[in-house]
Design a protein around this nucleic acid. Structure first.
Lengths: 362, 362
DNA sequence: CTGTTAGCGCGTTCAC
DNA sequence: GTGAACGCGCTAACAG
């Protein structure tokens, strides 16, 4: 910066004024400074600027699983909004590991990140403690945690799972297995609540031996479904708590030559880009991931910019059912009745393009 | 920091020594300082440190498509190596857009990022100019570009595509369509080179009307394959230049009720987590994405740490063929012969777990 | 072993 | 309109 000032025959203060574009500078001087900047290929030091202004212009996004397209899509949404507002997004992959999450929080706060969007790995907000202490704007996404009092954007997992389970029940299923994710997360707990609720509402006894929980990953789900099958539990349908686990369940069934959906139907929560190509095309409860990202970033930027500092806001996004083949809804009538109780279910046609479905509660 | 020093009854220099853990500090003093840090919930300011040390401890990773699991897997590899070395990874999604890429480079250089790993959006290194000017260590991945003289890690796309195409030829295919990606990228050009080479080598005339290029995305591929089919070009197999495009091709075929692989076989470059579940299970040329990430980060950290500053290194990773169902290799003999020329092809069994396949050329 | 001092590169008062 | 001077929070060099 000194070099630029010297070359333009002005002081560093003037150069600063030109760069940050505030304060009075004559057109002529400005031109000379711009020229000097070009000539010297000068790049201002954002660290020094941040040190002075106490703002870094970057927001952190902490997600638990970067290879999961649900989270990368959220990421895209958040990124687009942030970039439009002149902010950078720093993505951290916590790997469902609270320790990693905590490490990221510390590293990033020390980098003077202006705000955080977090899909928590654990069940509590303990790893976010530094953020509340330092009063750094934070928005949670996807997962609710104990001890956090701030903005949050998440899906309506209870209602979604009720609808998803009900869809199977309406198709005549009575023995439905539920392969759940990590119960440390509110998402898993809510989905289980929804599952149980749907059964009870339909007057079906909840078979505890058909319910299992563990991690969110493919392998784990495959193992659990295999165990279920090995124990020869009678079941006609499986609900997987996320898209990856549905794949695991599929693998377990396929390995045993069990037909989907003819013998066992499968549905799951969360859509993925290729869900419509998987064999058989998965019926899913899709969440508006991109929208979740944009909304969360909007709330965050409002906080950062000081445009809003009222009480915590909670945005709940409705998921929607995409009926494809894996649930068996489109099988000939004779095949889908497992109980002499074939009931017509409105078929929601699968459609591409995510529609914005926001339901602001609270 | 001053507060901490005061509370511990020492100078800020001593606090600094405790934090950065270098220089001599008595155990007793250290204890007092640690205690003060805890009490005040003090978090050091990395900006100020960076200002002083000229190092930020973060490396940038610029990828063209964050929803593509190939790149997120690369990301995971890079991240793991970086974290182990005490570095943070800043992920930027350039969206295959050179302007965005350039903006990221500028924003990140001004953030004093210590190094870059880039999968370039364009065909030239022009957007990376600031990096060479400022002598910031940079490693390219996946894609070669003009005008860049630095380390690079990429796959052997020519050889891979030769092998992939040869696989189809060996199965008897003669009319093979090639749905390529963006020719701005070396990847697309190399894959086309490999495709043509394989045909010529087999004495098959290259049918230009069966070759198309465009973007890397699903929709574009679907459109192009649809066009091909509408024009009633005779073809018995399709090679898609990446996994997404294979999905697009599948959709186009499915929409017309064309059987895969019985009527038209499909293979593609790049594996994806769910490739083994897609209908029909895709035969792919898988690249060691995770390894690509770890190697690139290793090369970069060597440069950053000053452990290596010799001439540019080029690491070429061999892909491997995973034969599944979409190529038709496992169909009954009668079906796969399209030319009275059924030739046995060694079946490489699909296996999970990526093996490290590095072939250091140069 | 510990304190003092001098900047890192920038934005921001103040005078002029 | 512009420049001089100060300080953001930290580390490196030196002195003690």
């Amino acid at each position: 910066m000194r070099d630029v000032a010297r070359r333009a025959g002005v002081s560093t203060a003037t150069v600063s004024r030109v760069i940050s574009n505030n304060g009075y500078v004559s057109a002529e001087t400005r031109r000379r400074v711009d020229r000097a900047i070009k000539d010297l290929a000068y790049v201002p030091n954002a660290l020094a600027r941040g040190l002075k202004t106490q703002r870094s212009g970057i927001v952190a996004l902490l997600i638990p699983e970067i290879v999961n397209s649900f989270y990368t899509t959220v990421c895209r949404g958040a990124e687009d909004v942030a970039n439009a507002a002149g902010f950078q997004v720093l993505v951290g992959n916590t790997d469902e590991d609270v320790a990693k999450e905590r490490a990221y929080v510390e590293l990033m706060t020390s980098s003077q990140v202006d705000g955080f969007i977090v899909a928590c790995a654990g069940h509590s907000a303990r790893s976010l403690r530094p953020l509340t202490t330092l009063q750094i704007p934070t928005v949670l996404i996807d997962r609710k945690v104990d001890g956090f009092a701030g903005d949050i954007v998440h899906g309506d997992n209870v209602a979604g799972m009720i609808q998803l389970t009900h869809h199977l029940i309406a198709l005549g299923h009575r023995r439905i297995a539920f392969v759940n994710g990590n119960l440390e997360t509110s998402v898993a707990r809510d989905r289980e609540t929804g599952f149980r609720h749907a059964l009870i509402e339909a007057g079906i006894a909840v078979a505890e031996d058909l319910i299992s929980a563990g991690t969110w990953f493919i392998d784990d789900a495959e193992t659990r479904v295999s165990t279920l099958l090995d124990r020869r539990r009678s079941l006609s349908a499986i609900v997987a708590a996320n898209n990856f686990m549905a794949i695991g369940a599929l693998r377990a069934l396929r390995r045993r030559g069990i037909q989907v959906p003819e013998t066992v139907a499968i549905v799951c929560y969360d859509d993925i880009e290729v869900a419509a190509e998987i064999d058989p095309f998965l019926t899913v409860m899709a969440q508006p991931a991109y929208t979740m990202g944009t909304l969360a970033m909007q709330l965050l930027l409002e906080r950062i910019g000081g445009k809003y500092n009222g009480p915590p806001r909670q945005v709940v996004l409705a998921p929607r059912l995409l009926v494809r083949r894996s649930c068996g809804a489109q099988l000939p009538i004779g095949l889908i009745s497992r109980n002499g109780n074939t009931q017509a279910e409105p078929i929601v046609t699968a459609s591409d393009g995510e529609r914005r479905q926001t339901a602001l509660t609270d």
